[in-house]
Design a protein around this nucleic acid. Structure first.
Length: 398
RNA sequence: GACCCCGUCGUCUAGCCCGGCCUAGGACACCGCCCUUUCACGGCGGUAACGCGGGUUCAAAUCCCGCCGGGGUCGCCA
């Protein structure tokens, strides 16, 4: 039957074959062992109209919604369209807010409300979210669950902020008042969103799910949060990650990164975070940068190695630096500057050729936080440790 | 195919209802410059859009019609 309809270019729909069976006919079919379904008898030529809170006035014709639809299956279990109406009514639902893929269900549901003589709730059909290929967002487009974003190190407030902006923008008048005071025009706290949000301002057009802006929002929140709050987020974050952990044992913190553990105290931990937070995109990055500050053992990046090989005078710079560091009582930004200047004079190198070797010797990398800040944080003893390690590593590589 | 929804920068959008203030505004991304003897941060600046065609009008992104394009729904699934 269905195939025939499709062939003729007609939409598959119930033909009304058993719409008006007599008692005798029903009995006969029952005896044959046929189990009946219960269908909703559609009114003829009735317009079903509602004002959708997002899409505006929507109108369907009863002759155009697929024929008498099933409300109870032959096994006696009722179907969704029938059940939601009863359920929502019983729960005193006033607003039905859902994806626009439900638009075509709505006329059926409205008819049921009418048949029951129940109040019809307000409907709001939100546009669906599209993947990069503009089709309905699904698993094959990558992460789609909140859990995945959590475990990637996105803060809950970042996701909320991002999602709110996907298909919604604050009402101009309301927004203008507060926008003056805002640090950033599109960063919203939960409270602001609650204050500003209105279904009326939802854009009826579907939006593509592109997380570029989410990265920005997350960076922003991570930078602005106070350290205690950030710490709380980190504690939550490690719960969903096998490779990271933060244990508090008395005053010491044991930080697990991959299969290594580092001991430190909260004060140092906070200091380290504060120095590196401008580099974070996600909470995951916290650990990446922390590792650099918490241990003096490191490997030298390929590119860093390359730099040293192509700039042989680098070794001289590092040796000189080592010598001079040993002579200093304490290492801070000032003494660092002094040392660098004297190396510059004595070896006649400057710029990248002067700073890079030192950076590589201390971190094994070509980029990172500012050298003077790093050195002040490490202190003399650890700087010496690192330099020694560098020369040991160097021997291995030779 | 039928029915329905949608169509402003690469992306998220403001403006559209109530035509002139739109030479189309903002944000992210991108590019450039400045700051920094690296990178990032920060500051400044730049590239970039009304799907197309007809009307209506002195005037259209805004109103009307058609087309095109994209998406959704067509189950005894939810």
């Amino acid at each position: 039957m269905k195939k025939e309809q499709l062939k003729k270019g007609l939409p598959p729909r119930y033909t009304g074959k058993c719409r008006n069976l007599t008692k005798e006919e029903k009995e006969k079919l029952k005896k044959e062992g046929r189990k009946p379904v219960i269908r909703f008898k559609l009114p003829e030529n009735e317009k079903i109209v509602w004002e959708d809170l997002v899409k505006g006035v929507l109108e369907f014709d009863s002759s155009n919604i697929g024929g008498d639809f099933v409300i109870v299956r032959s096994n006696g279990i009722p179907v969704y369209n029938f059940v939601v109406v009863i359920d929502d009514h019983l729960m005193n639902i006033t607003h039905v807010i859902r994806g626009e893929d439900h638009i075509s269900n709505t006329p059926k549901q409205i008819l049921l409300y009418k048949a029951f003589n129940w109040d019809i709730p307000k409907f709001a059909h939100l546009p669906i979210i599209l993947g990069k290929d503009k089709s309905k967002l699904s698993k094959r487009h990558g992460s789609t669950s909140v859990e995945e974003f959590r475990s990637k190190g996105y803060l809950p407030e970042s996701l909320i902020n991002f999602l709110a902006l996907l298909g919604w923008y604050p009402n101009e008048k309301l927004y203008k008042e507060i926008s003056q005071k805002k640090e950033h025009p599109e960063i919203f706290t939960k409270e602001e969103l609650i204050e500003l949000f209105d279904l009326k301002d939802v854009n009826p057009a579907p939006a593509i799910f592109d997380t570029t802006k989410l990265d920005f929002i997350n960076e922003f929140f991570i930078r602005k949060l106070d350290l205690d709050t950030l710490y709380k987020h980190l504690k939550e974050f490690v719960k969903v990650r096998e490779d990271f952990d933060i244990k508090e044992i008395g005053d010491t913190l044991v930080i697990k990164i991959k299969d290594k553990e580092f001991k430190t105290d909260k004060k140092t931990f906070y200091k380290a975070i504060d120095l590196t937070r401008n580099y974070y995109k996600t909470l995951e990055d916290v650990f990446v940068y922390l590792k650099e500050l918490l241990t003096d053992k490191f490997e030298i990046d390929k590119k860093a190695l390359e730099f040293i090989k192509t700039n042989p005078e680098s070794i001289k710079v590092i040796e000189k630096f080592f010598e001079k560091v040993k002579l200093e009582q304490v290492l801070n930004k000032d003494t660092f500057k002094k040392i660098v200047k004297s190396i510059q004079k004595e070896l006649k190198v400057k710029g990248k050729k002067l700073y890079m070797p030192i950076r590589i010797a201390l971190t094994g990398k070509l980029q990172g936080l500012e050298l003077d800040t790093l050195i002040e944080f490490l202190g003399k003893e650890r700087v010496i440790n690192r330099l020694k390690n560098f020369f040991l590593e160097g021997e291995k590589n030779d």
